[in-house]
Design a protein around this nucleic acid. Structure first.
Lengths: 332, 332
DNA sequence: TGCAATTTTGCAACCGGTTGCAAAATGGGT
DNA sequence: ACCCATTTTGCAACCGGTTGCAAAATTGCA
């Protein structure tokens, strides 16, 4: 089928090693030899088999890109950035879509069968143990958007979700709201848990403030919408911190439908600063999560791991900041 | 590093072939042998190297999933469906993100180096020649969301975009609009071109109707928004067919901002029927594109191709239908 | 129990490359 | 032209599996 190294060698009248060396940079080949081989290779349309070579070199340049988040549009950007970034470094993303049913062990096995050089786990809704399973299998792992830990088992790149929760609460309090609401994403997600923790810690520091909380069952528009519709039926808080922009935008649409308006009737602050948040008719006040930096840093870390698999696990936390737009009332 | 077949063989005290056979289904192994081998394998934590075996079997079970569409949220669903569908069949998607700069030849070479068993091109904005490049390289190709052709060079699964254009135009005319607008996606995309052709063909059949057209520079919210803002500055049409829901929703936000309303001031019909279109505060009348069926069918076709690479190229077109919601005025 | 038919097993070659090592070729200096 | 140091080349073994073939083991049946 495909042209092999042997055929090129025969055509060029040289040894197989010679051909191999012309296609391995850093190998010693004379100019004459190189020209001969390249000529034969071009004539035959030869291109080396990356998998066969991986057998001896031990590197496949395959990186498992594992996620379970195929509903939050922000992840389309995440995939975009990851695939481009990996490609630019000559690495190939093998995409793994974890569903609720998939057994972590299964994906670990599969990725090991394909001898991936490393694994990027891109999700804030997976248990930390998941990323660990790869590490235990001896595969370099970077957990992007994972939970910060003071004693990380694997490399983690992300934000300080606890601090984000605090930041949101402080902002709402400063704006003069006295009854706050926390509307989180799925309760099992570490990101949700941490944001909740931060938010509530600020509550205990401000006893005069009343707080309520609830959780949407996914990081998606629909879930946010449904949850806000539910909240509006009872006595809603004055302002909500939504665990993600998609939830906020869903909530916004629910508020809209109920004949209410932001910020006049209800305040809203999100998290992520996705593209849509900037639209003039949405104009969502939100906490900016530096996606691009997180992805870039994750890739750098992965590349570093490939050079030194023993590298000590590291946590990289990027600062978030509030982007003020129009869904909170002006400071009093 | 990893446990190899040889080590398992030694531990079990059998030949390497025996071990290989226990892990190849359909091979002849006695129960006793199988038990011995499985015991040793479990003790050592052995799992076969898929790439090494691909060397002799000629199958990697890798499928190149090639796209350039990382901005339209509908594609997150497309990726979700593709990855899940492929995984369910034991195939592994190798994701390739084509940017404007990437040379098709380059990706072809890369995917051949990894000996992918097949390639799915998921894009309506790539030239047909792109998919052909893979076919020419002897790799099974399915072009999903590609242009229908009566003499297909590769398998194509998608919709009849020309018919969709016609359908949209007819709908608008039936509703009594007399000045119609076509707001397409990127002009170079075959999907845009075909929808335009269909739309305009209906125009020439109805000489009383006035039509104008323009193109957004990407299938994205922002592009739709920008384009509609531009249109609104001059004398806009009474109703627009937007080449995609994301464009429509962007346009909707522009209309909103300008103090106008749908359908009272301007009518809008989209294409795709994405999740957001159903939101009550968007409530977009649109043409439903059966994404799920297209993906499922693409995967089936790919699997069929793996069995019979010589299979004659086929075009599979799925019917679209109008989903009536609230962005067009009622019939007169 | 003996014998032929059938199943199971191991040998060895192969898949498409890489690489350590020694032999061959080249280059420099006198 | 000769000798030695350096570079280039080919041989052969190896990476982790698979598979055709023949030998060995098992089975069925008389």
């Amino acid at each position: 089928m495909a042209v092999t190294l042997k055929e090129v060698a025969e055509r060029a009248g040289v040894s197989r090693s010679a051909v191999s060396r012309t296609f391995t940079d850093g190998a010693s080949v004379s100019d004459k030899m190189r020209r001969k081989v390249e000529k034969a290779a071009k004539e035959l349309g030869y291109s080396p088999n990356a998998l066969a070579s991986s057998l001896t070199t031990g590197r496949t340049k395959l990186i498992g890109l594992v996620s379970n988040n195929f509903h939050n549009p922000i992840f389309l950007e995440v995939f975009d950035l990851f695939t481009r970034g990996l490609q630019d470094r000559g690495l190939r993303p093998l995409l793994v879509n974890l569903t609720d049913e998939t057994d972590p062990e299964n994906s670990v096995r599969m990725l090991r069968q394909y001898s991936v050089d490393g694994v990027v786990v891109a999700s804030s809704t997976l248990p930390p143990g998941f990323a660990k399973a790869f590490r235990d299998a001896g595969v370099p792992v970077v957990h992007s958007f994972g939970r910060a830990s003071s004693a990380p088992q694997v490399h983690v790149v992300g934000i300080d979700n606890v601090e984000c929760g605090r930041m949101a609460a402080r902002e709402l309090i400063e704006r003069g709201y006295t009854h706050l609401g926390f509307m989180g994403g799925p309760e099992g997600a570490t990101s949700t848990q941490d944001r909740y923790t931060g938010f509530m810690s600020e509550m205990s520091a401000n006893p005069g403030i009343k707080a309520s909380y609830s959780f949407a069952d996914a990081y998606s528009f629909d879930a946010g919408r449904r949850e806000m519709l539910r909240l509006l039926k009872n006595s809603p808080a004055q302002a909500y911190f939504c665990g993600d922009d998609v939830l906020s935008i869903g909530a916004l649409s629910a508020i809209d439908d109920s004949g209410l308006a932001c910020p006049d009737d209800i305040g809203l602050i999100g998290l992520n600063d996705m593209e849509m948040s900037r639209w003039e008719n949405i104009d969502l006040t939100t906490i900016h999560q530096p996606i691009r930096q997180i992805v870039t840093s994750s890739i750098e870390l992965m590349v570093a791991m490939l050079d030194d698999p023993e590298r000590y696990p590291e946590t990289r936390i990027f600062p978030c900041s509030i982007v003020e737009r129009g869904t909170l009332k002006a400071e009093v």
